[in-house]
Design a protein around this nucleic acid. Sequence first.
DNA 1: CATGGAATTGTACACGTGTGCAATACTGGA
DNA 2: TCCAGTATTGCACACGTGTACAATTCCATG
Lengths: 331, 331
Amino acid sequence: MSSSEKPNRKVTSFDVARRAGVSRAAVSRAFTPNASVSPETREKVVKAAKELGYRVNYLARGLINQRSDFVGIVAAGMDNPFRAMQIEQITKNLVRRNFRPILLPADHGESADHVMDQLLHYNVSGVLVTSDAPPTALCAEFAAAGVPIVLINKADSIPAVDRVVSDNDTAGRLAATTLIEGGAQHLAVMSAAAISYTARRRQQAFLACCHSLEADVRVIPVKINDYANGFAAAAALDGVDGVFCVNDYMACGLIDGLRQRGIAIPDGVRIIGHDDVPQASWTGYDLTTLRQPCDLQAEQAIDLLLSRMDDPETAERVELTPISLVRRSTA
Amino acid sequence: MSSSEKPNRKVTSFDVARRAGVSRAAVSRAFTPNASVSPETREKVVKAAKELGYRVNYLARGLINQRSDFVGIVAAGMDNPFRAMQIEQITKNLVRRNFRPILLPADHGESADHVMDQLLHYNVSGVLVTSDAPPTALCAEFAAAGVPIVLINKADSIPAVDRVVSDNDTAGRLAATTLIEGGAQHLAVMSAAAISYTARRRQQAFLACCHSLEADVRVIPVKINDYANGFAAAAALDGVDGVFCVNDYMACGLIDGLRQRGIAIPDGVRIIGHDDVPQASWTGYDLTTLRQPCDLQAEQAIDLLLSRMDDPETAERVELTPISLVRRSTA
DNA sequence: CATGGAATTGTACACGTGTGCAATACTGGA
DNA sequence: TCCAGTATTGCACACGTGTACAATTCCATG
């Protein structure tokens, strides 16, 4: 207390400049890549900076550059392990490329718009959206502000926005053929088609493939694609020996529900999921599934974000093919 | 292109001021709570702001206020479902209180320090740490910068830092008594005590309780507290009929591993976990566990952060008692 | 030594906002 | 009507940085 009067005084580039005996501009240049500084002054500056504990204030820098290092991530609930994987991959990839991820949880419903709106206050350099409800209204505002948006696994209804999507058509087809090859004759697809775009698309493709193969098939609608709904649906499952769950999370619930009824997997019912969450390879489930490569998904989405910062005029659509993993649940 | 020359021009408070016919200060005050503005001017300002699509630039505001709305979250891998739950609770709670969570993934090892250092460039108003390796070296730097840190489930080795911890002593004791009451006579504790503080503490308490009850007990060390290590450890498990896994994630692995060997749960081996991840209540596992109330944990941690912003001198330690949930794995 | 060009440096302005201070408008009572 | 007290407003400065432009230094070549 008696030794220094200003304990929390921030160190600015001005302090560093004075200590190093150079101008403040030199300090700025020393910390800016590809700036015009001589090696000697740069050395003097970093030395003084280290001694004073100086750190560039990125908020001020962002004010000048009209663009911050922040990237918004709008994501729905992480109870689904696939979402957790997605977020982990995305954040790691962003940090690796020197961005700061702002994570905004958006549950099913209206909250997404309100929460995304906040991002426009921070000069974010982009937004990644994986939540269920695409923020149609806000896309225009972001476009007007020059902030690129990349949608992951979202509907095509919004026109000029970049998208990374899983190839749901092949997914549906692979699911159908895998079940049939496993010996199933009475098929079903379980999905919350009403609220989820990917669920709807996978269901459509699955049905189309079944019809073209003239296979018996029906739809089992659920409210949400989660464990609880999968589990509950097992109680009413009859006359079916092969089920395509549009995600693994729900498939785990269905398996547990069927086992509780004494129905064996795969002998009683064959099951295929989608995503390849960690639990799918747990021996308790050993679930055949269609892997969504979410490391690649993150990579592509961020690549798209970057290319859109440079060239805002166009919009791309990248499709990733799911990888078939046959395990015991259909063998 | 021909209609307007500046399509992406940012709208500033100056533009709003001119349109509303007031000074720029009035605009600022209209968007600042508890500022001195008459209702009429405020109304004029918000009207003009809405027409122009104006949004306050929080980066500039943070520059003035010396404090931003950002809170850093340093978290380890989300493959453990409990971590995903923690992060979801924390981010939701932060957003509800009008903060922006910056999520920094820090895997086991050295990377945490490097990544946390970045936060000091953004005037974050606080940091929450749940990663395994506490950043001892950086805590002093954050204290010097006046940025409060709250550690969640971390060691007591760092002196004057706020902490929210689960009561590991009661956890160890409850685990032991629950297993014994379930009929177990030869106990074991499975944990990566070498790398995890909580694992170490729970193990110690478990052993102490067993010794005081004169029960047979041994230690099964693993490298990491995860599914794979739990599964692998099942292969070498002999002469034991009750196991305390220091987290549920590992317990799931152990259960699957034992079942693969044909050992039934709980008749062959009773198992108790810790955390109450969603999978613990899945009927496939039905795992007795000690629930960590991670909604309350998040609430307390952020409360601590806020009180430390106002009064930086002290430091508290909040302990949360785990809740015993007895399910089939010990019944 | 003179000179042209390149490399480096410093000055000064800009980014968009919050707020102390003084000036002004307003209110109610005598 | 006048005045004291209060509510409201505007001016001007500050926050910490990047960079255009001009000024300066440096170096090699004639």
